[in-house]
Structure formats: structure tokens, C-alpha cells
Design a protein around this nucleic acid. Structure first.
Length: 470
RNA sequence: GGUCCCAUCGUCUAGGGGUUAGGACGCUGGCCUCUCACGCCGGUAACCCGGGUUCAAAUCCCGGUGGGACUACCA
């Protein structure tokens, strides 16, 4: 593949907020497309809306992409810094008669639009200034002279052939009266200038595509390929928004989701590979194409994301998970000094939590020796009988030679047999003594993680508690 | 209103002229078991409607219906 045929895609968010789930998926698809074909992925910040764009948003978007593992080869470029290029292109169009000055005021335009709508006509620009050949003036905007004849065909990589009748298109403004370019113009100039070969974006842009194609042609640029990915919807089938819960990528990080899980979830929204559900980023690069991207919108399903997150946590090497748990433990004020101990905590808990936050909360009893017994747990399990069983355990544990899962299991069974009862009868009181709850990782795992000393201490404390009850 | 897009279990999807319409999440029954989770085995549930083409249509075509997007001197 020669240099001029190399695939170049881009992600072009506007920095007016955080990176949301929908944007992340679009970015992921554009990124995968470039990576799959050995191309380049660029990042361009569309900050021409000077009122709503902020640097904080730019940083938040960059951080989110980085967290997801989506790296870019070029950029970030900032569209606002490229206005001179945009203006030069406007001038060129003006000089060639392909664009013209328009002095209709926004107020008048709004008025006409409303009237057209109430009268049941198309609210498109009526062409008042189209043939006036107006000269430059301080408050003149520039409009593109759109051909009203014929059709414009988009051969979309995911939607297929889409045909637009040019008479539906109007003379869109390409440069505002304040001298700044509008979105539809800036994207075209920038995409062409940056050599973008495949424009992969949300399908909320399909109706912009014919005007943009006309702009490419007017400017004398090669028209790229387009691939419009469907939207993500909330459970009520309207476009995903805050109303549907968390929509920010970083919010998912903070809620204890793994980036791999989010990526895996997002890619399966609209894209599939047979019956396969689990994909690593490197595998995706190998097999991802736009051919297997569906056309219809998908509803965001938090339960499935949660399931994937749990899956990735379970599969993750303990050492890695320990590292990823650090901020969540620290957030709860736990002592994270003992790496070995933390490793045990994680391996005890990682198949029992769906998020890192859940794991952190579930691990509380490992860190606090002053355990609080759940009311119901202590009521039913920390009784006089249990106190005697526990006393027997406390007495024997210090001299237990084989303090391993197998050894502990054997020990527990031996003791229960000796006391003429069975494991079930002793395990629950012991669990309550060690964890304060009736639900926990296996008794043997907990005992090993805690270590003999703390186990004995907790058992004794539970005995005291049982006795003090009446 | 106009333009454009879309339509398989509740959700994500596979499939695509002849299939018991497959998988996953969820829900659910069971097994495992010291509790819970994991895991394993099973169950529940779908081709929007109407025409046409065809020996045969969920699959192709048309229409309808429903949903969505766009219709800015926002991006």
C-alpha cells in the first residue's frame, strides 16, 4: 500500500463537555478502522464555538481517550487555530463565484423560517442575497452557492447508498458575520487538508454529508469515504443523555469499571463477530471492519456492561488488579502498605465483585479489626453453642501446622467431627466472627488472608460478644 | 411539516429464500458447596404489519406503522 493510499481517520470532538459514551464508541470505531488497515488516527478538537469550548473539556476528553487505550498518531489539532486556512478557502470560493456575501440578519432569517414552517413550506434559505453580488461589508456572512439541480449520492460504508436531491439543500453559511467559519465548512477544509480518507462519525451527520460533498467538490478536493455509525440510545429509545444515568467515560472509571470492559461493551454495540462476546483491543484491531457494523441504533444496557466488568476483573491477574484497586482503597482510608496482604484480599474477592468500588467496599472487614457484626448475623449465629465451638477453635489454631487452604479445611472438619457436629454448624459463626457478615469469601481463604493472629483475636472477640449478649 | 436513516427474544446481536431461528446480558430451575460469588447443566423469550415476487419469505421488492436523526451565523 503506497503512502497516498494509507488510511487516515480522525476523531473530532468539540470541547464543550466530557467525553461521553457515544463519542467514545465513535472514536473507538475510527481508531480501530485506522489500526486495522495500518493507517493513522488523528485527533482534532473542534473548538470553533468559542463560547462553549473550554480547555478543561479538551483535557477531560484527552484523558478519557488515553484511559480507554485509544492513542492518536497526530494532533490534537485545534480547529480554532486554523481559521486563516478556512478564511483563505472562503476567499477562494468567493473569487470563483461559488460563494457570496449575505446580509440577511439572523433575526430576519429566524422570522422567515418560522413563517415558512407555519405555512407548511420548507424552512430553507430563500436566496435573498444569492444573486445580488454583494460586496464585503462588516456584518456580512458568506454563503455557499449550492447547486439546486441533480442529486448527490453518498456511498456510505455502513449505511450503503444514500441519495439526496440537491433541491433539498440550501445555501449554507460557511463563514459567520464575525469572520469565523461554521462547522460544516471547517470540517471539510480540515478533513481535506489533513488528508482524511475515511470519515467515521455518528449518523447524526448523514444529513450534513451531501452539503459537505458539494463543498469538497467546490473546493476541488477529493471526497473521502464516509461511514456513519448509528447512535446509542437510552432505555426509552431516545438519544442517550444524562437522564439515563452516567454517560461520561470518566464516570465509569470512577465507578470502578475497567477500560477493557467498557471498550468491549462499546464495540459490541453495533458491531459483532459471530457469537463472540469477549474481545481484547489487539484482537479487535485484527478483526474489526466496517462491514460487520450494523445500521440500527442500539440501546445502552448497563447490566451487560456490569457483567463484562465482572468478567474482566475475574480474569485479571491479581497483581494488576491490586494496582488498579489502590485509589479506591485509599479513598476509603485503608492502609495499602502490605502488597502481599492486598494480593490475598483481591484474590479472595475478585470473583465476588462487579466493580472496583464494590471490591473496595467488600474488603472493609479485612482492614478493620474492630468489625461490626451485622445485627441479624450476630443474633442468629453468635450464641452460646457457637461460643463453645469458637473457643475450641481459638485454642487449637495457634498450633495448627498446615495453615493452608487444604490444611485449614482438614482442621475444621476434624474439629467439627470431634465435637459431634458438622462443618455447616461451625462455619457460619466463624464467618460472622471473622467478617461480621453471613456472606463472605470462603472461610479458609479469609483465615489465610487475615493470618492466625488476627483470626484468633477476632474469634476471641466474638466469644466475648456472644457471652455478653445475655 | 420536509429530508434522511433504522426495524430478529425485554436488551445487545448471529443468520438470511427451505434452520427445531443460534449466542450473550437479564430473569429463572438445578448441580457444586462452609455462606456468597465463580463455574457447570437446563428453562423463559423474537423475525413490526400488509401486499407482491417465488414451489417456498423472517430473509428479496413495495407500501404502511413505529422509532431515531437532521432541518442554526452549534458542533
Amino acid at each position: 500500500m503506497s503512502a497516498q493510499h494509507i488510511v487516515r481517520t480522525r476523531f473530532a470532538p468539540s470541547p464543550t463537555g466530557f467525553l461521553h459514551i457515544g463519542g467514545a464508541r465513535t472514536a473507538l470505531f475510527a481508531w480501530l478502522y485506522a489500526r486495522h488497515y495500518g493507517g493513522r488516527f488523528l485527533l482534532r478538537i473542534e473548538d470553533t464555538d468559542r463560547l462553549r469550548s473550554t480547555e478543561a473539556s479538551t483535557n477531560a476528553i484527552l484523558d478519557a481517550l488515553t484511559w480507554l487505550g485509544l492513542d492518536w498518531d497526530e494532533g490534537p489539532y485545534f480547529q480554532a487555530r486554523r481559521v486563516e486556512i478556512h478564511r483563505a478557502m472562503v476567499k477562494k470560493l468567493l473569487a470563483e463565484g461559488k460563494a457570496y456575501y449575505c446580509v440577511c440578519t439572523p433575526g430576519e432569517l429566524e422570522e422567515k423560517r418560522k413563517r415558512a414552517l407555519t405555512e407548511g413550506r420548507k424552512p430553507k434559505y430563500d436566496g435573498t442575497c444569492r444573486d445580488k453580488n454583494l460586496p464585503w461589508s462588516a456584518d456580512a456572512a458568506v454563503r455557499f452557492r449550492t447547486s439546486q439541480a441533480g442529486v448527490t449520492v453518498v456511498n456510505d460504508l455502513v449505511k450503503g447508498v444514500i441519495t439526496f436531491s440537491n433541491e433539498e439543500l440550501d445555501d449554507l453559511i460557511i463563514q459567520r458575520r464575525d469572520g469565523y467559519p461554521t462547522y460544516n465548512f471547517a470540517v471539510v477544509v480540515d478533513d481535506a487538508d489533513m488528508g482524511i480518507t475515511h470519515v467515521i462519525r455518528g449518523d447524526d451527520h448523514v444529513n450534513n454529508t451531501p452539503r459537505q460533498i458539494l463543498l469538497y467538490e467546490g473546493l476541488g478536493f477529493a471526497v473521502p469515504q464516509f461511514g456513519h455509525v448509528s447512535m446509542i440510545m437510552g432505555s426509552d429509545k431516545t438519544r442517550l443523555s444524562k437522564r439515563h444515568g452516567a454517560t461520561s467515560v470518566m464516570a465509569y472509571r470512577d465507578m470502578g469499571y475497567l477500560p477493557e470492559a467498557l471498550v468491549n461493551y462499546l464495540v459490541r454495540l453495533g458491531w459483532s463477530h459471530g457469537d463472540q462476546e469477549i474481545f481484547s483491543l489487539s484482537e479487535l484491531i485484527r478483526i474489526f471492519t466496517l462491514d460487520s457494523v450494523g445500521k440500527s441504533a442500539a440501546v445502552f444496557n448497563p447490566e451487560k456492561l456490569l457483567w463484562l466488568n465482572q468478567y474482566y476483573m475475574k480474569e485479571r491477574p491479581t497483581g494488576h488488579l491490586v494496582q488498579e484497586m489502590m485509589p479506591f482503597w485509599r479513598n476509603l482510608g485503608f492502609d495499602t502498605g502490605d502488597r502481599d496482604f492486598l494480593g490475598h484480599v483481591v484474590s479472595d474477592l475478585k470473583s465476588r465483585a462487579k466493580t472496583l468500588v464494590e471490591l473496595a467496599e467488600a474488603s472493609t472487614f479485612y482492614f478493620n479489626d474492630d468489625i461490626v457484626y451485622d445485627r441479624e448475623a450476630s443474633d442468629t449465629f453468635l450464641n452460646a453453642d457457637a461460643a463453645e465451638h469458637l473457643a475450641a477453635l481459638a485454642e487449637k489454631i495457634p498450633s495448627l501446622g498446615d495453615y493452608t487452604r487444604k490444611g485449614i479445611e482438614t482442621f475444621l472438619r476434624t474439629v467439627t467431627a470431634q465435637r459431634g457436629t458438622n462443618l455447616k454448624v461451625i462455619a457460619q459463626p466463624l464467618r460472622v466472627a471473622l467478617t461480621g457478615k453471613t456472606v463472605s469469601p470462603g472461610i479458609d481463604e479469609v483465615m489465610i488472608t487475615l493470618g492466625k493472629e488476627r483470626v484468633v483475636k477476632r474469634i476471641k472477640k466474638a466469644i466475648e460478644f456472644a457471652k455478653s449478649k445475655n
